[in-house]
């Protein structure tokens, strides 16, 4: 091989070989630890493989539309809602302050345990943001036109709105 005739070529070959080896090693390691690299499990995952009782886990999914109930217990806010991944849904109870992004239709990740009755008791709730960035006027225009209900569906395809300029109303 012409590549191996010069010192430079040999160094390059060794370098590429090392990178391929290292890359495969890293790939295999990531594959082996795949389950541990997952930040959360979904209600569907739990239905398929129930966890041992009392094990702390992170539950992720969308807050089901119309399922949020808020009240207060001993002066602390308590929220109840259902988290769904489309395959299964779980009742979640959380005592504490919900993050700003929490709303119906929003992705959330809740840390807690599965109770014997099949509901989920969360000690921490994080809101998961999607990759959509939209000014309020555009969101309002899409909702008004009936293209989108944020409580029950993700944002429509970006090409449909990312250059949209809604006319200012009341001007």
């Amino acid at each position: 091989m012409a590549l191996l005739r010069t010192r430079k070529g040999r160094r390059l070959a060794v370098l590429l070989l090392c990178l391929v080896g290292l890359g495969s090693a890293a790939g295999l390691a990531l594959l082996a630890f795949r389950d541990n690299l997952v930040f959360f499990v979904t209600p569907g995952d739990l239905a398929e493989a129930p966890p041992p009782a009392g094990r702390m886990l992170r539950l992720g999914g969308l807050v089901e539309a119309g399922s949020v109930a808020r009240d207060r217990r001993d002066g602390k806010p308590v929220a109840r809602f259902r988290v769904t991944d489309g395959r299964a849904a779980l009742d979640v109870e959380f005592a504490g302050i919900l993050p700003d992004l929490f709303r119906e239709g929003q992705g959330v990740v809740a840390l807690g345990t599965l109770r014997p009755d099949g509901s989920f008791l969360a000690s921490e709730v994080l809101a998961k943001h999607d990759e959509t960035y939209m000014p309020p006027e555009v969101a309002a225009a899409l909702k008004k036109a009936g293209h989108w209900q944020p409580e029950s569906a993700p944002a429509p395809p970006a090409a449909g709105w990312n250059t949209l300029t809604p006319r200012k109303s009341g001007g």
């Binding site: 990531l30 795949r34 690299l37 997952v38 930040f39 959360f40 499990v41 979904t42 992720g60 990740v109 994080l126 998961k128 943001h129 999607d130 990759e131 959509t132 960035y133 939209m134 000014p135 555009v138 944002a155 395809p157 970006a158 090409a159 709105w161 990312n162 250059t163 949209l164």
Partner: peptide, 25 residues
């Protein structure tokens, strides 16, 4: 893309339309 993460997926890509309004893009 490979794992469930709390961090959102990419907004900008070479192939698809950016899911970000032009006034922010």
């Amino acid at each position: 893309d490979w794992w469930n993460t709390l961090h959102q997926p990419a907004t900008l890509s070479l192939t698809g339309a950016p899911s970000m309004h032009v006034s922010m893009l």
